[in-house]
Write a protein that binds this DNA or RNA. Sequence first.
DNA 1: CACAATCTACTAATAAATTAGTTGACTCCA
DNA 2: TGGAGTCAACTAATTTATTAGTAGATTGTG
Lengths: 131, 131
Amino acid sequence: MPRPKTPDLTTAEQRIMDVLWTRGEASVRDVADALKDKHDLAYTTVMTTMKIMADKGYLSFRKEGRAHIYAPKLSRHGARRSALAGLVSSLFDGSPRHLAQHLVEDEKLTLEDIDALRAELIKRQSQGEDT
Amino acid sequence: MPRPKTPDLTTAEQRIMDVLWTRGEASVRDVADALKDKHDLAYTTVMTTMKIMADKGYLSFRKEGRAHIYAPKLSRHGARRSALAGLVSSLFDGSPRHLAQHLVEDEKLTLEDIDALRAELIKRQSQGEDT
DNA sequence: CACAATCTACTAATAAATTAGTTGACTCCA
DNA sequence: TGGAGTCAACTAATTTATTAGTAGATTGTG
């Protein structure tokens, strides 16, 4: 078996997804222009990548005049969820709690952060009490 | 610019790292045997990958008789930290809190988990009070 | 209608990642 | 001491990912 497909978004795909998540939908031209400052890629480069992403099922598109208008089929939330799930299973023994613990140990979370999480969880529990 | 180097551990590298993190150090033979059940790779495959990992600086090795004994230069904790940092910056606007919030929203953390985090944080704060 | 602009499709080059075969050296016993 | 086994080095094949060039179609405007 040779090189396997990357399970999550590659960096080039990530850049494009960010634009699409922000705009909702966009043409190749839109995306290339939006990325121009940080990554001055050739128009065809962006197009090729977006076509591959469509092939992978990450994007849908519709024709509008001569151009294709692309839209993300994968939501930002979905991407976050699957990336997190992958990280948890590969490096944190499948335990999300373990991951959170690590953030605390590395001082990435403050007491205020944790209290906010707690409040959010309680709010959710009381809302979904009888569903 | 062609395909860029993968910033974090690839899946093949991950498999090998898991063995080394568990054992502390191991020969190619040890690793190949340990992976035999889940991934029956050729001895040379494991060797090639480990050599590449040594080139990348992920592993060190010493000679013991005819064999090379490899040891991880990157700790499990370090790998977790850098993988988390990458994920936070690429998908969570650079906010670890945002990531934790996501775990709550997706019901990956229970109230007990959060309280344990809270306790851990407070313990750490009181310990490192005057360093 | 002709020309310029623009867009897609096709092609291509390059490096990384994964897997494994071959070769040559070294070692361990019988 | 000579054959069997083991190990590292080298080579190689294959696919993904990233970037971009070329060609051909289409469209809007003067």
